[in-house]
Design a binder for these strands. Sequence first.
DNA 1: ACATTAAGTGATT
DNA 2: AATCACTTAATGT
Length: 208
Amino acid sequence: MIAEKFKNIFEPELITEIEKVANIIEVKEGNTILDIGQTVRVIPLLLTGILKISRADDAGKELLLYYVHANESCAMTFTCCMQQYPSEIKATAETDATFLAIPINKMDQWLSLYPTWKSFVMKTIRHRFNELLNTINQLAFQKLDERLINYLKEKAKATNSTLINLSHEEIANEMASSREVISRLLKKLEHDNKVLLYRNQIKLLKDL
DNA sequence: ACATTAAGTGATT
DNA sequence: AATCACTTAATGT
């Protein structure tokens, strides 16, 4: 059934274990699965949909870190849950999503029991680490306009649409910038025929 | 028609 | 690039 998806990743014994202990959880678009400060109690294995992982500063300004796609898990939860630390990050459903919730104690056991689980965990940590390095690079060296273009493209990919339903303010929040700055950059993009601007909507054009 | 919210803009730091 | 102060435009009631 659900574990069909992992046939090629995990050995059969592990799959039956997963089926035995995992709950299937469905979340609606926009729901927050895990907030900053909360303690991680389960490991999510995404089956469908996309999760958005972000971090907030002291003033509550958000910064988008990365997206989790289907068949992936969030590496932060691995590290957080192992020692039961409160979460440093916030996870919200970018789209409607379903995931398997695996109790944290299993996570530990399986590491020594199943080689495929171990390599899966290692792989997603490595993957995430690389992605984080990437975003650090962007923050450090990339100009805001390039980051914005990147952001829009990621968003388009996540929603599978070139029509983005966000206000300038929401974008500014996710990029830890300010509304006016985003407005001006978007205006410039519009002049360059890269986007079309509407109220609460942005249409991405082909040559973005 | 009016109030509310999003977006645009110039000036300042 | 951020913030402020203000204007203009779009949208809901």
